[in-house]
């Protein structure tokens, strides 16, 4: 790459959140070029909105026992409720819980666990990665060896190990996901920082006598952000998927706070007797969420990668 990508010098000049002009407007414009990615973004927005406004959108609070009618247990999708009033779009479980409502409430837990875990992991991992690149020497070697060690084991095994010691619970799952994911952020952040810190604009800032902290936060960090944003997007999807898997295995969230994975797990026991909907629809919700996030992340990668730009 001989020509310097046009995005690099700009963030140092103005604040990152520049609204209409500047690098982020270009990112938005480039992003909108792919109809597939835009569709995914719209779907994702709908999923998030559905999760946020779940209490307003659902006919019942699936975890308020007063609102459940045992007479409506195990109804097929599309059945009307015994007391009249509304239709169970996606059927009910053995306690007469509306599956559609349960999915929206489950989405809340899945999404918040995934987002919180991925963001905290990003913060911890990126800080450690930048720190490693900045201090160098033995500290850097120690941190990066730890990263190598952890990444040589599959994520599910690391999570399993942590939850085996800690026991289940929402906080423990989040903690396990953070520990699983921080290493990839650290590797990416360090790699990018090493490349960027050799660039001319950093040298120029250095020659101008700009203080070190200002160089790191105003010049280096904004330019290391794109790969980290791409990674954070994909890692949210990974975190949601891993949480679902752990919950399915009975090691994740407790029964009182069922995520999509736990809903699927609950439906599993009825699968063999033909009540497919209890596992099928939460799975579809999970799938749509993960695929949408991955597609958005892929598009981010294309937008931020100067080589891929047409």
């Amino acid at each position: 790459m001989t020509q310097v990508p046009d995005q690099t010098p700009i963030p140092a000049a103005g604040p990152v959140g520049g609204a209409t002009r500047g690098p982020w407007a270009r990112v938005a414009r480039d992003f909108a070029r792919s109809p597939l990615a835009m569709t995914a973004l719209v779907v994702l927005a709908l999923v998030v909105l559905a999760a946020v406004f779940a209490p307003l959108l659902t006919p019942q609070n699936p975890y308020d026992l007063m609102q459940l009618d045992i007479m409506d247990g195990m109804l097929e999708p599309g059945s009307p409720s015994a007391a009249g009033g509304y239709t169970y779009l996606l059927g009910t479980d053995d306690q007469g819980r509306d599956l559609f409502s349960a999915i929206l409430y489950g989405l809340r837990i899945s999404l918040s666990v995934g987002v919180v875990a991925a963001l905290v992991a990003a913060l911890v991992g990126a800080s450690l990665g930048l720190f490693a690149a900045y201090v160098g020497g033995r500290t850097e070697t120690a941190i990066m060896r730890l990263v190598d060690l952890q990444l040589s084991f599959p994520s599910i095994l690391v999570a399993l190990m942590i939850l085996a010691f800690l026991g289940k619970g929402v906080q423990n799952v989040v903690l396990a996901l953070i520990i699983v994911e921080w290493a990839s952020y650290a590797r990416t952040a360090r790699g990018t920082a090493l490349v960027e810190s050799r660039r001319e604009y950093i040298q120029a800032a250095d020659c101008l006598g700009v203080p070190m902290s200002r160089i790191i936060f105003r010049h280096l960090l904004p330019n290391c952000l794109p790969p980290l944003i791409v990674m954070a997007t994909i890692q949210v999807a990974r975190a949601i998927s891993l949480e679902a898997t752990l919950s399915f295995l009975g090691l994740g969230v407790p029964v009182t706070e069922p995520s999509l994975g736990l809903l699927i797990s609950n439906g599993y026991q009825y699968l063999l007797s033909g009540q497919y909907w209890l596992s099928f629809y939460p799975g579809i919700a999970l799938l749509v969420t993960i695929v949408a996030i991955n597609l958005v992340g892929d598009q981010f990668r294309d937008v931020f990668n100067p080589k891929g730009r047409g």
């Binding site: 679902a244 898997t245 063999l272 596992s279 799975g283 999970l286 799938l287 993960i290 991955n294």
Partner: peptide, 22 residues
């Protein structure tokens, strides 16, 4: 193959059981 990456393993397993076994 993108779908293969995105689909959670455990859910594919359930669907395989649903289709081929049930």
């Amino acid at each position: 193959s993108i779908l293969g990456f995105s689909l959670p393993t455990f859910w594919i397993g359930l669907m395989l059981i649903m289709v081929f076994a049930v």
